[in-house]
């Protein structure tokens, strides 16, 4: 396709930066959440092995954060085509970058929150079983941060097609 002021050559680069940032930042968050809460679970498991099943909830939530990033990356990647087939405007490129950054960085924030709350929460749960409901609630509120990023990214991705 022809190059124009609205669709310069470097526009796909910005869109691909969106894909990469969604995956990279989201997975950094998910990895931190899994690792930090995994340390706590290993500490609890040596004293109360029967609690491990319930203590694995932060790990599952970190996995969900990675799924959010994955979904957005797949969505953006499906909109990209080789330059011969599609005119990719700069507007679309920045839209995709915003998509990727919003889901990636909220995933990073949510993963950081889940890691710290998961580590402290499971250790506290070992001493006092009533803390479980509170821990799960805090974890859900932390994970919802990533969900907000996903919703914004989905809306941006829909707009970028129009």
């Amino acid at each position: 396709m022809d190059e124009s002021e609205l669709a310069p050559k470097f526009a796909p680069f910005i869109g691909m930066a969106g894909i990469a940032s969604a995956m990279i930042f989201g997975c950094i968050g998910a990895a931190y959440g899994t690792a930090k809460s995994g340390i706590g679970i290993a500490g609890v498991g040596t004293f109360r092995p029967d609690l491990i099943m319930k203590c694995l909830i932060p790990v599952i939530m970190s996995g969900i954060l990675a799924v959010y990033s994955l979904v957005i990356s797949v969505l953006i990647a499906e909109d990209l085509q080789p330059p011969s087939a599609q005119s990719y405007s700069l507007f679309t490129g920045f839209m995709h970058l915003a998509c990727g950054l919003s889901v990636g960085l909220t995933g990073l924030a949510a993963g950081y929150c889940i890691g710290i709350v998961g580590d402290g929460g499971v250790r506290a749960y070992m001493e006092q079983s009533r803390i479980f409901v509170g821990m799960v609630l805090i974890l859900i509120f932390g994970e919802v941060l990533g969900l907000y990023g996903l919703i914004v990214a989905l809306i941006l991705n829909t707009k970028s097609k129009g």
Binding site: G63, I64, V67, Y68, V71, I72, V74, L75, E78, L147, L150, L154, I155, N157, T158
Partner: peptide, 14 residues
């Protein structure tokens, strides 16, 4: 409509 499908994927994860 990829947005709805992506939303469904997020819902299923939850």
């Amino acid at each position: 409509n990829a947005s709805y499908a992506g939303g469904l994927a997020a819902v299923l994860a939850n």
